[in-house]
Nucleic acid binder design. Structure first.
Length: 260
DNA sequence: AAAAACATCAACCGCTCAGTA
DNA sequence: CTACTGAGCGGTTGATGTTTT
């Protein structure tokens, strides 16, 4: 028995989303919430498949998304998590508030991979490329970056003991950053405790990298900065009525803040 | 200035998994 | 238990932008 296509291919639009389509989708989701994605295109008046709508929303339109490149600290976090989880982008993304699996995956493939290779680290195994000599040493001296017992995801079959190298070199900024992360016990514990998701705000990592304690929670300004972005490319094309009262309040607040 | 090569990232495709009848 | 459906995930593609020749 063949699997039914997720949507009727005929009459379904593909390719980049237009501002008009975005507007319709935002309007619909903010009014009705996220319900059955298959029904969304029909109800929202879109000639798209539900899958495409879900992707557009989760990867681009969600109000809690951060925009822009990953910070250095976020990058380090991704590297650490990748060493632990492999290509489980959604799991990794769950640890980086405001970032999507797609975004992280793209960033990994375009930036981080190259960076690691440049540093002499295999992006797949996270081992140094000239590992033979090193691996013996590090396995004896033990791994002070990671807890011995992995009570969360058993990832050994995908990436065997690979974090050591990341923590051992100290001659550049990236390594220092990572070392800070590795040495923070509570942080590492929360990281390895993968099944529940008390999200760590990425800005905390920036504080951490500066040797500060975690005391910064995500602000409304951060979470709703995208609304200002909307203004930049013409928010009125979207129509103010597609935003909730809360979002409008925040937007007004931000507007006032910008004028000062 | 034009063409080629390279980099980036939004979006698609096909698969797996969980839920349900 | 089986068949089926919808949602989500990860790999890949292709359009577009940028840099190099």
């Amino acid at each position: 028995m063949g699997r039914q296509p997720c949507c009727d291919k005929l009459g379904v639009k593909k390719g980049p989303w237009t501002a008009e389509e975005d507007k319709k989708l935002i309007n619909f989701i903010l009014t009705n919430g996220q319900c059955c994605w298959r029904a969304v295109p029909k109800l929202a008046g879109l000639r798209r498949c539900g899958k495409s709508c879900r992707l557009r929303w989760t990867n681009y339109l969600r109000p809690d998304l951060k925009r822009g490149l990953l910070s250095e600290a976020e990058e380090q976090l991704v590297i650490e998590l990748h060493a632990r989880l492999g290509n489980r982008w959604s799991k990794i993304a769950a640890r980086l508030p405001g970032r999507t699996d797609n975004e992280i995956k793209n960033h990994w493939n375009t930036h981080i991979k190259k960076k690691l290779l440049k540093m002499g680290i295999d992006p797949v195994t996270h081992e140094t490329l000239h590992k033979e000599a090193v691996s013996e040493e590090t396995s004896k001296s033990g791994n002070n970056c990671l807890p011995e017992n992995d009570h969360s995801v058993n990832h050994s079959e995908e990436n065997s003991s690979s974090q050591t190298e990341n923590c051992s070199s100290t001659d550049d900024h990236d390594s220092l950053l990572l070392e800070n992360i590795c040495n923070n016990e509570s942080l590492m514990n929360s990281l390895w405790n993968m099944d529940e998701a008390p999200l760590v705000n990425a800005s905390n990592w920036e504080n951490l990298s500066n040797g500060e304690n975690i005391d910064h929670m995500p602000s409304l300004e951060e979470n709703y900065a995208w609304l200002l972005d909307c203004q930049d490319f013409g928010i009125h094309d979207f129509g103010y009525d597609c935003f909730s009262d809360v979002e409008l309040n925040v937007l007004n607040t931000l507007e006032m803040g910008e004028k000062h």
